[in-house]
C-alpha cells in the first residue's frame, strides 16, 4: 500500500453492496483499491460523484473537503481553528452547541463528541511527532502548542442526510498503510486486544471513529496536509450508523 502513497495517484474504486465493515477494511488494506462505496448507502449518488471528483482532481478535497463531499447539497458549515491541546474541551463544546440546532443530530450526539475528541487528539498528539520522524505519538497528558503556523482546524457541515465532521492539519504525516493495517488488526484481535498500554495513544481511536460513522475519508498530501473526515447519518437515516455497511476513501495527492 505504501506504493500508493509514494507513486500512484490514480486509485481504483469498487462499488459493493451490504459489505460488512471488516471486509471493507480488508479490501482497502490488501488490494490497491482506495475507494469502497456501498450501493445501498446514504447519499450514494453523492459518494459516486465524490469518487469521480477526486479522481479528476484530488486537490478539490484538500482545498474544500465539505464542498467536495456534499457538493451543492451543503446547507451550513462551521470551522474552528486550534493549536493547543488545552483547547480540546472548548472545541468539543463549540461543535456541541452548533450541531444542537441541526434537526436529527441529537440522536448521534455521542458519536459526534467522540469523533471530534479523537480527531482533535490525533492532530495534536500524532501528526506533529510523525511529521518530525518520531516513531510514537506524544504522551496524552503533555501540553502541546503547535504554533500559529501549524494550527489545525475542525470543520463540520451538513446536508439533509449527513453530517460531515473533519479535521485538517498541515503536517501530512498520516500513514495510510499503517492506519489500514491497524484497523484490520482491531478486527482480527478485537478492540481490547489492540489497545496499547502506554502513555501515548491507545491505538484504537480510528476504530472507534470508524464504528461511529458511515463514511470515512482519509486524505494525505505528504508532508503538506492531512484531512480526515467522517460522515454520520442524520434525520430518518440516523440509525444507519448502527448498521455495519460503511464507505471508505483514500485521497492521495502527489504534486
Amino acid at each position: 500500500m505504501n506504493s500508493l502513497v509514494k507513486k500512484q495517484v490514480y486509485i481504483p474504486s469498487v462499488l459493493v453492496k451490504d459489505l460488512p465493515a471488516d471486509e471493507v477494511i480488508k479490501i482497502i488494506t490488501v488490494s490497491q483499491v482506495g475507494h469502497v462505496v456501498q450501493k445501498n448507502g446514504v447519499d450514494f449518488e453523492l459518494e459516486k460523484q465524490f469518487v469521480d471528483g477526486v479522481k479528476l482532481n484530488s486537490l478539490n478535497y484538500f482545498s474544500d473537503p465539505l464542498k467536495a463531499i456534499l457538493g451543492s447539497t451543503l446547507i451550513n458549515q462551521l470551522h474552528i481553528k486550534f493549536k493547543e491541546s488545552v483547547q480540546k474541551k472548548e472545541t468539543i463544546e463549540k461543535v456541541k452547541v452548533w450541531v444542537s440546532n441541526i434537526r436529527g443530530a441529537s440522536r448521534i450526539q455521542d458519536s459526534i463528541y467522540l469523533i471530534v475528541d479523537e480527531l482533535f487528539t490525533n492532530a495534536i498528539y500524532n501528526a506533529l511527532p510523525f511529521f518530525v520522524g518520531l516513531r510514537d505519538s506524544l504522551d496524552r497528558k503533555e501540553k502541546v502548542d503547535l504554533t500559529d503556523r501549524k494550527a489545525c482546524e475542525i470543520f463540520v457541515g451538513h446536508n439533509e442526510h449527513r453530517l460531515i465532521l473533519g479535521c485538517s492539519d498541515s503536517f501530512g504525516s498520516l500513514n495510510l498503510e499503517k492506519l489500514s493495517n491497524q484497523l484490520l488488526n482491531t478486527y482480527a484481535k478485537g478492540i481490547a486486544g489492540s489497545i496499547k498500554y502506554g502513555k501515548n495513544g491507545a491505538g484504537i481511536g480510528c476504530r472507534l471513529m470508524f464504528d461511529n460513522c458511515i463514511n470515512f475519508y482519509l486524505g494525505v498530501r505528504e508532508n503538506e496536509q492531512t484531512i480526515v473526515a467522517l460522515g454520520l447519518p442524520i434525520g430518518p437515516n440516523a440509525r444507519a450508523i448502527d448498521i455495519n455497511f460503511k464507505n471508505i476513501h483514500f485521497i492521495i495527492n502527489k504534486e
Binding site: D110, L114, A192, Y197
Partner: peptide, 14 residues
C-alpha cells in the same frame, strides 16, 4: 458519565 474516548477505555480497563 458524559463521554468516553479511546484513552478513557484504556485507563478504565487498567
Amino acid at each position: 458519565v458524559t463521554a468516553i474516548n479511546s484513552c478513557g477505555i484504556r485507563e478504565w480497563i487498567r
